[in-house]
Design a protein around this nucleic acid. Structure first.
Lengths: 117, 117
DNA sequence: CAGCATCCTTGGCGATACTG
DNA sequence: CAGTATCGCCAAGGATGCTG
């Protein structure tokens, strides 16, 4: 059990932090069906600010999860896509999404029960 | 419309937010091998503050992911354990942990490459 | 032991304006 | 179009002290 996410300064906790980032999860999910332009991502991910989208994409790129491809055209065009590593992560993240939708009603029922007392 | 995490006010995004919470993930992982006392959780999860531990546990309890059992003893004893719902979530979260440890080196290599540019 | 209440800081994030 | 740069807020979260 060497890389231990329970240890404060372990790298694997940083990885978990990135996985756990709400915007990262949504970006990876959005890239599930192939590469997307910056604007497409901004459009599909409701409520994300320009700043957070850029910041999230930079982080994912840095971690080797997405690629950033700049096309030298006018107007400029930048495509983002999942790497192999990113696709391996997508499997898990898609599982989270499925869990969330599948158990949404159950969670909301539990919340109602909790709030009622 | 189907539960769509990309929509700003969809409940499933709230579920994803909870899943994505770093402390929630670590608490669920810590409860993987059976119930734990409050103090045990505080001890095993390095760096968590009392406030955040309590807050996280309340959230997870409210969502029906953990149970909270108060034993009427002196000194008081409170046990936390995963519900069935929590265990179904554990499967996914454990997958995240495994992914994180398995690909940690790869991620760090990507970061080094990125930073060296 | 297992918490709740308070204060206080910091940095995350949105909003806005500007550029190649 | 796809960003960078800057400002400002406020709420997340740490530290501390108190209680059943």
């Amino acid at each position: 059990m060497n890389p231990d996410p329970f240890s404060r300064n372990c790298g694997s906790r940083k990885v978990i932090d990135r996985i756990g980032d709400r915007w990262s999860v949504l970006v990876v999910l959005t890239l599930a069906d192939g590469e997307k332009r910056y604007g497409e991502l901004a459009e599909r991910i409701d409520g994300i600010s320009q700043k957070m989208l850029t910041q999230t994409l930079r982080g994912l790129e840095r971690d080797g999860i997405v690629t950033r491809t700049v096309h030298a055209s006018v107007p400029p065009r930048v495509d983002y896509a999942l790497t192999d590593l990113g696709r391996s992560l997508l499997d898990l993240v898609a599982g989270l999404e499925e869990w969330a939708t599948r158990h949404l009603a159950e969670v909301e029922a539990a919340q109602a029960r909790y709030d009622a007392r």
